[in-house]
Amino acid sequence: MLSQVVSEGNENLKIRSLAVTARIGLPLRFWKDTPFYLRYNEVKTMAESQTNPEPSVPISAWLPAVALSWIIPGGGHFLLKQYGRGAILMGSVLLTFLLGLLMRGAFFEPQSGDLLTTLIYWGGYFADMCSGIFYFLAVWMGYTQPDVAGHVHDYGTKFLVGAGLMNVLAMVDAFEIATKKKS
């Protein structure tokens, strides 16, 4: 008797749930056939397949190498035991910086004014500073050169900035080696 009641109760529950599913399921099935949903589903699947969670690298693994690369160009590579690459990068940055000094290039000083002036002078200042110890030594030893006309001075200024930008590439390379993105 009891089992019959339970069985009838279950049947009733099943019928009611089927009715609810039919009421909700029909518009849902219709919605799932629309191009909006298909596109949404396609993008969602693509995003899920492209999501490749990489384990985060602790800051202590790369900061010393990157900081050393900035202070001493190529130094980060030496720290990471990439001696050949470190020596070539150090030599390249040093050669470019020395050529810039020998051509009497000018260091950029921060200046503000219109947007372009601010961008050029602040950008040049940061790029000069990216040469690390070479820049600081030159400044500490009293190297000054006013920005004068002439193609040699102009090239010198560009060589000094170029040396700093090359060192930025070296710093990025050191970061990638330290985080094992590159061997």
Binding site: L89, S92, T96, L102, V152, Y155, G162, K182
Partner: peptide, 29 residues
């Protein structure tokens, strides 16, 4: 002492050094 290079010499030197650096930092082997 001042180094006086022509446009051509300066650009050749710059191209040489930046090519070395780009080759070193970009590729794997």
């Amino acid at each position: 002492m001042k180094l006086s290079l022509t446009h051509f010499e300066a650009t050749i030197l710059f191209a040489l050094v930046i090519s070395v650096v780009l080759g070193i930092v970009t590729k794997k082997t």
